[in-house]
């Protein structure tokens, strides 16, 4: 991966998408030793509003820290999809939460639909881990870092009491992403 690989995580403020970006950057740069830059953009609200986090991963040092042509994009809400699911490269990937994004943006990219929030709520039992389900799905779908690396980065970030919960969320997301990739 000498070239830049650009990912964008978008959703509502408070959904943990900036955290998901940080975890991915940590997996790529600290654990796998690649170059990674994580950046974000958000409004003045602490909750709500559309927020995005971008992660650039490369084998070479990264100059421009923001996305130019997005390889893979995640949109958790309709507002985020409308606002941030753009600039996706031809043949790139868009992963949407199928329950919350009714009108998927159209373009020369592949749209994957996963009920991310529902999986977190019903299969794991906690909506709060939706960002980790999403992260797992993105990693499964793109292979941008190894499965184990992603998991290790998730576990580094969460308190001991929540490790099992997050491990389960990550695995479920990863499996789903992997399945879609095949």
């Amino acid at each position: 991966m000498a070239e830049r690989y650009e990912l964008r995580f978008s959703g509502a403020g408070g959904q943990g998408l900036i955290t998901a970006g940080i975890i991915l950057a940590e997996a790529a740069s600290i654990i796998e030793g690649k170059h990674a830059v994580q950046s974000q953009s958000y409004g003045p609200e602490a909750r709500g509003g559309a927020s995005k986090s971008e992660v650039i991963i490369s084998d070479a040092p990264i100059d421009y820290p923001k996305a130019t042509i997005v390889d893979a994009c995640l949109a958790m809400t309709q507002e985020a999809a409308d606002k941030y699911a753009n600039g996706i490269k031809k043949g790139g990937l868009l992963l949407i939460d199928s329950d919350f994004v009714q009108n998927a943006p159209e373009g020369d990219f592949i749209v994957h639909r996963v009920p991310i929030m529902r999986m977190a709520k019903e299969d794991i039992g906690r909506e709060i881990v939706a960002n980790v389900v999403a992260l797992g799905a993105v990693i499964g779908l793109t292979g941008v870092v190894a499965r184990e690396t992603g998991e290790e980065a998730v576990l580094r970030k969460v308190p001991a009491a929540f490790k099992d919960l997050n491990k389960k969320a990550y695995s479920m997301g990863y499996e789903k992403g992997k399945e879609l990739a095949e």
């Binding site: 940080i22 950057a25 740069s29 600290i30 170059h35 990674a36 830059v37 994580q38 950046s39 974000q40 990264i62 820290p65 923001k66």
Partner: peptide, 9 residues
């Protein structure tokens, strides 16, 4: 703000 808020190794 971009450099202030972005994360790198």
């Amino acid at each position: 703000e971009i450099v202030g808020h972005m994360r790198e190794r």
